[in-house]
C-alpha cells in the first residue's frame, strides 16, 4: 500500500502534529515501506483463524468497585502547561463549540 503526502497531511492533522514538507515526504516513504512489509502476511491463508483483538489470550480482567484515592492533584497540575488555582487552564472554548455541555461522545 502506498502512503502519499496527502495521507500524511490528513493523519498528522488528526494527530495534531506539525510537520515540515521534507519530513512529510520522508514519513510517507517510511510508512509505505512498513505497510508493504506487513503485506507479506497477506500470503498466509487465515480463512480458518478467529479474528484477534489482543496479543494475549486474557479476558475478563476485573477490579472490585472499591475507592482507592490517588491524591495526585498537585503533582498532576505541576506538569500541566498552565493552571488556574485547582484547575487546568486551557485555550478558551467558546460556548456552543463542541462538547462543552454534553460530556462524552460528540458524534454518536
Amino acid at each position: 500500500m502506498k502512503i502519499t503526502v496527502k495521507d500524511v497531511n490528513y493523519v498528522s492533522r488528526l494527530a495534531l502534529l506539525g510537520l515540515e514538507e521534507e519530513e512529510k515526504e520522508k514519513i510517507a516513504r517510511e510508512l509505505s515501506s512498513i505497510l508493504e512489509y506487513m503485506e507479506t502476511m497477506g500470503e498466509l491463508d487465515t480463512g480458518g483463524v478467529e479474528p484477534t483483538a489482543h496479543v494475549l489470550p486474557n479476558k475478563n480482567v476485573f477490579r472490585k468497585d472499591e475507592v482507592r484515592p490517588a491524591d495526585i492533584r498537585e503533582e498532576a497540575l505541576a506538569i500541566a502547561p498552565r493552571r488556574e488555582g485547582s484547575y487546568y487552564k486551557v485555550p478558551p472554548i467558546l460556548e456552543g463549540e463542541q462538547g462543552t455541555e454534553g460530556g462524552a461522545d460528540r458524534e454518536g
Partner: peptide
C-alpha cells in the same frame, strides 16, 4: 463507587481535580 477503569471516586461534586489518578489522567 469508582470510575470505569480506576479506583477514583465517582461522587458528584468534590474539590476540582481531586478524584483523579494516573490511569484516568
Amino acid at each position: 463507587q469508582t470510575k470505569l477503569f480506576c479506583g477514583c471516586s465517582t461522587a458528584f461534586g468534590g474539590e476540582p481535580n481531586t478524584r483523579v489518578c494516573p490511569v484516568c489522567l
